[in-house]
């Protein structure tokens, strides 16, 4: 049995040494966040599932081939792979031809969350869905920073660099995103109790 108190770097070292249980622990630790992040970009559950699989397999290949260079932490690294593969997905699909990351524009500016599906109809009263709706209603620039900071774990400086704004602008956008969400919660009398949210 693997010691679950080990940190990501320790687990990676074990995995590099051939311990598959260490990888299983890493996967269990981060799979939901990776899946959520990809879903928030591609807005389709099945595409997100395929991409999540692709992300982890790409990571496995990198690690097993000895090319993993841990300059940063494991989660930001794997989320970055997820982000890049999600953008590649849009390029292949040509569903969002205006997305060109190289020139500094952001994929998030062109994205919308999924339209109401049958599943959404069934659970539309769910607080979880309300939160998804609130995030969707945020101005593009605020939603972009919120996703990059909160789900992709990029620092505010990295976000500022990626979106070509000052760090104070990135911070301000995050602050307004949080304030706007708080206002929406208050307007709709949503309790903040974490237990209300579906896991």
């Amino acid at each position: 049995m693997i010691n679950t108190s080990l940190n990501d770097s320790e687990l990676l070292s074990l995995y590099i040494g051939g311990n598959e249980e260490a990888f299983e622990e890493l996967l269990n630790r981060h799979k939901d966040r990776v899946f959520t992040t990809i879903y928030l970009i591609v807005k389709d559950r099945y595409t997100a599932e395929d991409l999540m699989q692709e992300v982890f397999i790409k990571a496995i290949r990198t690690i097993k081939s000895g090319r993993y260079n841990e300059e940063g932490k494991f989660l930001p690294w794997i989320l970055r792979i997820g982000h890049n593969l999600s953008i590649d997905h849009f390029r292949k699909e040509k569903r969002y031809p205006t997305i060109v990351m190289e020139d500094g524009s952001s994929v998030f500016n062109s994205l919308e969350f999924s339209e109401t599906s049958i599943e959404d109809e069934h659970i539309k009263q769910d607080t979880y869905n309300l939160l998804k709706g609130y995030i969707k209603e945020l101005p593009d620039t605020q939603r972009e920073v919120l996703m990059m900071r909160h789900y992709m774990k990029m620092s505010f400086q990295e976000i500022a660099d990626a979106t070509d704004v000052s760090i104070n602008t990135a911070l301000g956008r995050m602050r307004y995103a949080l304030i706007n969400l708080r206002k929406k919660f208050e307007q709709n009398q949503i309790a903040y109790d974490k237990n209300l949210y579906r896991k």
Binding site: D32, R33, F35, E49, H150, L181, Y192, K199
Partner: peptide
């Protein structure tokens, strides 16, 4: 509190993919 709500917005990765 808002940040905690965002933390709770985490979708379960499908078991088959795992």
């Amino acid at each position: 509190r808002v940040m905690e709500s965002l933390d709770a917005f985490v979708m379960k990765a499908p078991k088959e993919a795992v």
